[in-house]
């Protein structure tokens, strides 16, 4: 979503993005002229007249689980977004029985919060697991 019109979205997809992604952008490119939607999410920069680089993960109930907002010159990390979605899905599927510690990635250890784990996280989770 940007403040550009759908016509500019088409031109961008036709002339540039389709050269990066075969068949063009597979998802909808939304237009937010005037930034009203961006404002409701808190990422519209009124002085510059554009949206900041905001990314929101919204769960199947319509609840915002996470977001990231960057100033324009720095791009996102798509792998990190996918990792977060997978983590939120695991928490949701387990109905909160599982939690993903710092550095968690698919296939790695999750935590099972409960009375037995209080004060014992150090036994199962090591600080170097935050970094790899």
């Amino acid at each position: 979503m940007s403040v550009d019109s759908v016509f500019v979205h088409k031109m961008w997809d036709d002339n540039e993005l389709s050269k990066m992604v075969e068949g063009g952008v597979p998802f909808a490119m939304l237009s937010d002229g005037g930034g009203r939607v961006g404002s409701s999410f808190g990422v519209y920069d009124e002085d510059a007249g554009v949206e900041n680089r905001g990314r929101f993960i919204i769960d199947p109930d319509g609840v915002v689980q996470g977001y990231e907002v960057l100033t324009p010159p720095v791009g996102r990390n798509v792998s990190e977004t996918l990792r977060q979605i997978r983590a939120f899905q695991i928490v949701r599927e387990s109905k909160g029985a599982e939690a993903t510690p710092s550095g968690w990635a698919p296939g790695k250890l999750t935590l099972k919060p409960g009375p037995e784990l209080v004060g014992k996280v150090w036994e199962v989770w090591k600080t170097d697991m935050a970094l790899d």
């Binding site: 979503m1 940007s2 403040v3 979205h9 510059a48 554009v50 990314r55 993960i57 919204i58 199947p60």
Partner: peptide
């Protein structure tokens, strides 16, 4: 699940 991305401009 929905990912909504906003960006400065085309």
């Amino acid at each position: 699940w929905v990912v909504l991305c906003l960006y400065p401009g085309d």
